[in-house]
Design a protein around this nucleic acid. Structure first.
Lengths: 149, 149
DNA sequence: ATTTGTGCAAATCGTTTGCATCTGA
DNA sequence: TCAGATGCAAACGATTTGCACAAAT
């Protein structure tokens, strides 16, 4: 169900190569900042980042990028199918490096998102959409709270 | 599954009475603006409103309320269990007058929310939450797009 | 009389945009 | 070369906040 070939490995050379070809395919030049951000995003497994956090990471990693470019890049990557956008609350938007069909745990206390493991979660008894409409996507967010005990 | 007695009827006298008692129960004074907003919200079946839209409605209906009060009221009602908050995209927050367990269709084209009818929609194969955490709520949003045909 | 709520306008926060400057093919 | 990218700072839209005034109990 989850396409393994759709993810990024751990080898950063592979990451860079794959990224460059994906960017080219979308008509996006593999510029310094796009490649740098791509490495942060895809360099170490699945991630859920906000623009602000990615910006901090880039800055900390001596990759000078402007916040505007981080936003641009995240949106361009999303349009290119490299990222998936997730709105969890009215505040911030998360970008998920795992673009395959899957759902999320939201840790309400620290506003952190996690993929739901063993991704065979399914939505049952979904009525057919009204005429003229098709299902674009189904988002399931399981909100978790600390056990008060 | 859906508790019918948990909703508001059509009779505005009942609505007002019920609202007043619910407000009292939450330690909220039934002020002019809270009652007025409550009537708009609960007067005609289940609704999904944004603060901005409710503000416009109140203004149009000759109920002078400030936007700040609309926000305050929506949050207080939510805390009192009269409303449920739904974040659908990173932009706006919707408040749902139906507080029972149910899920939503999101019409992406016009950013409108609808309850999924025949609400026996269920999420299957959900793994147990990590230790120390409990499921606070499960949100399912089915994104619908116009059929391109 | 005291407490609680309201309204306004200014402040905040995440995000976007305009525009001059740079850069990669 | 020159379309396309970047960076900065100003603009934005939704939401919140501070504080003086008004209304409920």
């Amino acid at each position: 169900m989850i396409a393994a070939e759709d993810r990024w490995g751990d080898c950063s050379a592979d990451v860079a190569r794959e990224l460059a070809s994906r960017l080219n395919a979308s008509g996006l030049r593999p510029t310094r900042q796009r490649v740098a951000l791509g490495e942060l995003l895809f360099g170490k497994g699945d991630r859920h980042v906000t623009a602000e956090r990615l910006f901090e990471e880039a800055t900390a990693a001596q990759m000078p990028v402007s916040l505007a470019t981080v936003y641009n890049t995240l949106h361009q990557f999303t349009a290119a199918g490299l990222l998936r956008e997730i709105a969890v609350d009215g505040e911030r938007v998360y970008f998920d490096t795992n673009t395959s069909e899957h759902h999320h745990f939201l840790l309400e206390d620290d506003e952190e998102l996690y993929d739901i493991p063993g991704s065979n979660v399914a939505v049952a008894n979904l009525p057919a959409p009204p005429a003229g409409l098709r299902v674009a996507r189904v988002d399931v967010i399981v909100r978790l709270r600390r056990d008060q005990a």
